[in-house]
Write a protein that binds this DNA or RNA. Structure first.
Lengths: 110, 110
DNA sequence: GAGGAACATCGACGGATGTCAATGTGTTCC
DNA sequence: GGAACACATTGACATCCGTCGATGTTCCTC
C-alpha cells in the first residue's frame, strides 16, 4: 500500500483521478471516517509537544484499550500518525506532511 | 445529520474535537473513503461547467448503474455534491464550500 | 396515454469493520 | 529470573458496506 500520498496524487480537480491511485487515497480518507479516530487525531494535533502517550488516549475517547489500540493501528497504516516506543510506553504523533497531503488533494483545480 | 461542516467544526488542531461534533465530520470523510466515490468526485471537479450528467458517470468508474447511483447518494447525503434534475437526466455538481470545509478541518493549529 | 429512456430504490449476498474479553509480547525493576 | 506494567494481537460477534439484478418512479415523446 502506497503511503506517500503527496507523491501519489495531484489535487482531485486537476485531472481525472486514475483508478490505480484511488485506493491508497481512499484508505487514508477512510481512516478519518470514524468518530473515534477523528478524536484521536485531534488529541494528537492539539497536544503540547506534538505527541501523546497511548495511555493518555484511552480515557478521553471512552473506548476499551484494545479498541483504541486498533484505531491507532488504522491511523498508523494510513500513514497519518507515527508511533515511538519509549520504555514501556508508546508515544503517538501526527504525521503533518501526510495530513497536509490530504488537504492538498481536496484543493480545486488551479 | 448536520451538514454544514464549516459551522460545525473548527480545525482539528485548534481544540479537542467534542464527541458530539465528530460523527458528522466522520461521515463526510467516510464518504471520501471509497475509490469509486473519489473518482466520481474527481470527475465532477474536473468537469467543464462544473457539472456532469449521471449518465456520463457510469462508464468511467466501471460499475453498474445502481452501484453508481448508490455512491452518488452517499456523496449527496454527505453534502459533498448536489443533484439537479433537468428533463429525464440528473446533473451532479461538487459543493465547493463543503469540500473546502473538510480541507479546513485538516488544518494545523494556528 | 402508451412506450421508452434515465435514474432511484429494493432485496440479497459476501466481505469488511467496530467492539470487547482474553491472551500475547516486550520492557522495567526488584 | 520473576513480577508488574503498557501496549498489541487474537477470536468472536453484530453491524455496516459495496455490489448487482430486478423492479419502481419520473419524465419526455409520439
Amino acid at each position: 500500500m502506497l503511503n506517500d500520498l503527496a507523491a501519489c496524487c495531484a489535487p482531485l480537480g486537476t485531472a481525472a483521478l486514475p483508478a490505480e491511485n484511488a485506493p491508497p487515497l481512499a484508505k487514508a480518507f477512510a481512516a478519518l471516517g470514524d468518530p473515534v479516530r477523528l478524536r484521536l487525531l485531534s488529541l494528537l494535533m492539539t497536544a503540547e509537544g506534538g505527541q501523546v502517550c497511548a495511555c493518555d488516549l484511552v480515557e478521553p475517547v471512552g473506548k476499551s484499550q484494545p479498541t483504541v489500540s486498533h484505531h491507532l493501528k488504522v491511523l498508523r497504516e494510513a500513514g497519518l500518525v507515527t508511533a515511538t516506543r519509549r520504555g514501556t510506553n508508546v508515544w503517538y504523533a501526527v504525521a503533518p506532511e501526510q495530513v497536509a497531503a490530504l488537504r492538498e488533494v481536496l484543493a480545486p483545480a488551479t
